[in-house]
């Protein structure tokens, strides 16, 4: 609610304590999602310190953190992190262009749908990791092979959600656009694309998930850079702390990607009133 400042009487102590309550309440609200991970960390730390968890099985979070710090200072960690990040960014970019592009084509044009959709749906059912041997034969064991498998992971969710987003639009709205004299291009721009956007963004989040999974797998095959390599290498030397560090980094990067998409959602899908849970 918007209230003029003087009318709200911020000088009065009642108003101040109200403001305080609001601040505390919103702070509590933002804290809630972090409670579970924090609790796990605390319990984990205590168990490790008390010796219930052998270091070889699961080192304490503080130890993992200090290992992470050492690797950062030595420049080792930033190097691998950057390589993984770059792979992810390329794969997402290529996957988005292909997935959203083809989804738009089959969603908008019946001819494209008839030509492409059933073939794409057929390929979709093939688990992308089953393509690893083929990808190695085609591209060798270099970057192209990794990129290919990650793009495949990102492609299908983007394709399906874009196509469905366009196809599930209320036909009445298309009639309205026709009655009000919108051209074909205007219909696409003002009606079909905005209608598909929420669905596409769900696809982006799912694509991140699958692409990430494939990244982790491809970074364990024949590579000397990336977080996956770091983890795999650490396994050879039984460095549990580095393995745990790598896993935590994957979790953080995944969360960061997801948060970015949600930020995007809040910015561009403000019109949609959503069920917020009870």
């Amino acid at each position: 609610m918007l209230v003029p400042v003087d009318a709200a009487g911020l000088g009065s102590s009642a108003a101040r304590s109200r403001l305080m309550r609001v601040t505390v309440a919103s702070g509590w609200h933002q804290l809630k999602p972090w409670l579970l991970p924090l609790a796990v960390l605390v319990i984990w730390e205590i168990s490790a310190r008390l010796g219930w968890l052998p270091r070889r099985i699961l080192p304490a979070p503080s130890h993992v953190l200090s290992v992470g710090w050492e690797l950062t200072v030595s420049g080792e960690l930033p190097k691998h992190l950057w390589v993984s990040f770059r792979r992810a960014a390329y794969a997402m970019a290529i996957g988005s262009v292909l997935g959203i592009g083809l989804g738009l084509a089959t969603g908008l044009f019946r001819l494209a749908e008839q030509l492409l959709d059933s073939s794409i749906q057929m390929l979709r059912t093939v688990p992308s990791l089953a393509l690893i041997p083929l990808a190695i034969l085609w591209f060798g064991i270099g970057e192209e092979c990794k990129l290919f498998l990650m793009v495949v992971g990102a492609f299908f969710p983007l394709y399906i959600t874009t196509y469905l987003g366009i196809r599930s639009i209320d036909p009445r709205l298309i009639e309205v656009a026709q009655i009000f004299g919108l051209t074909r291009g205007e219909l696409i721009r003002h009606v079909l694309l905005p209608a598909a956007l929420p669905s596409v963004l769900v696809g982006v989040r799912m694509a991140f998930g699958l692409m990430w999974m494939n990244l982790i797998v491809v970074e364990t095959i024949a590579t000397d850079k990336g977080i996956g390599y770091l983890i795999n290498n650490a396994r050879e030397f039984m460095q549990t702390d580095i393995i745990v560090l790598g896993i935590l980094l994957y979790a953080l990067l995944g969360k960061a990607a997801d948060s970015t998409v949600r930020l995007f959602e809040r910015r561009f899908v403000t019109w949609k009133s959503q069920f917020a849970g009870v």
Partner: peptide, 12 residues
């Protein structure tokens, strides 16, 4: 035309 449901574009 004006329909029974307003048929407004929700994103505009």
């Amino acid at each position: 035309v004006m329909f029974q449901d307003a048929a407004l574009l929700p994103w505009k």
